[in-house]
Simulated scan of single mutants.
Amino acid sequence: MIRLETHCHTRYSKDSLLLHSLLYIKCRLCHIDAIAICEHNNILGALKFKEYCSKRKNKVFVIVGEEIMTSSGEIIGLYLNEEIPAGLSCDETIDRIISQGGVVYVPHPYDEKRAKTVLSEDCIRLNSHRIDCMECYNGRNVDENYGIQQTRIADKYGLVKVVGSDAHTLMEIGRNYMEVKSVPLNSSEFRDVIKRCTFHTKPCIKLAHKVTKVAKLMKMIVKGNFNEIYRVINRKIKK
């Protein structure tokens, strides 16, 4: 059986410092055969990791994805050839994924801690016929009830369920994945294998959330985004 891990981030995301060299080593150690890299609002990280893996003797198949912030919350596109800009409507974002022959994938459809990024249920309802799959479990769920609610939403709209890693750090890789019959080389094969897969999940490593916050802060400092740092600190104080 093939181990497929979806919804992973690297240093090309605003909140991750994960190097491609370390990611590759961890994939090999954890026997991850295929991985979907889904950076926030860009496909550069996925393209770079795909190139990196292609030069290695022991290949890891890389699915080029993107976690796109729409006006209604986040949607993932898999098997993309072109980057999709953030800020578009839910409908247009899905249109653009489909026009590339990609997979429309909904991450964490319920998460109280990330309510601002959760795709609205109205968007899910209206586009259920165009959504290929939805996470019934996300590796960053801090509460087991989130997975229960995610499964409920997927079942409510009759959507194919998947497990999403959402790994941002090295410690999270290889913990949440699906066992499938073959490496999904294209979007059609992906849709086929996820219908008959086995889920492997482990509880969230809460320390990883803290590491992510540090990573995001470090990147803002390096870029000189001190106004944004001030706004974040101010929001924390007001809470």
Rank of each mutant, 00 (worst) to 15 (best):
P184L: 06
K219W: 10
L217C: 13
R191T: 00
K195D: 09
V183C: 09
K219M: 13
A215H: 14
I194G: 14
T212E: 08
S182I: 07
A215D: 08
S188G: 04
K216Q: 13
M171G: 08
E179N: 13
T212I: 14
V180G: 07
F190G: 00
D192Q: 11
K206M: 15
V214A: 09
E172V: 03
T201W: 07
I194T: 05
N176K: 09
L185M: 11
F190C: 01
K206A: 11
M178L: 14
Y177V: 08
V180D: 11
C197K: 12
M171Q: 12
H200D: 03
A208D: 15
D192W: 04
I173N: 06
V183G: 06
S188A: 10
V183K: 04
N186Q: 02
R196C: 03
A215T: 02
I194S: 09
L217N: 09
R191W: 00
E179D: 12
G174R: 04
I194D: 07
K210I: 12
Y177S: 13
M171F: 10
H200P: 01
M171L: 14
F190V: 01
K210Y: 07
E189D: 03
P203N: 03
I205R: 04
V180M: 10
E179M: 15
V180C: 08
T201Q: 10
V214H: 13
N186G: 02
E172K: 06
K195G: 10
K202E: 15
I194N: 02
T212P: 04
I194Y: 06
K216N: 07
D192I: 08
P203R: 01
I173F: 07
T198F: 13
R175E: 00
K219C: 06
D192F: 08
K219S: 11
H200F: 05
V214I: 15
D192G: 04
E189A: 00
K195E: 12
E172L: 08
T198S: 11
C204E: 11
V214L: 12
H200Q: 02
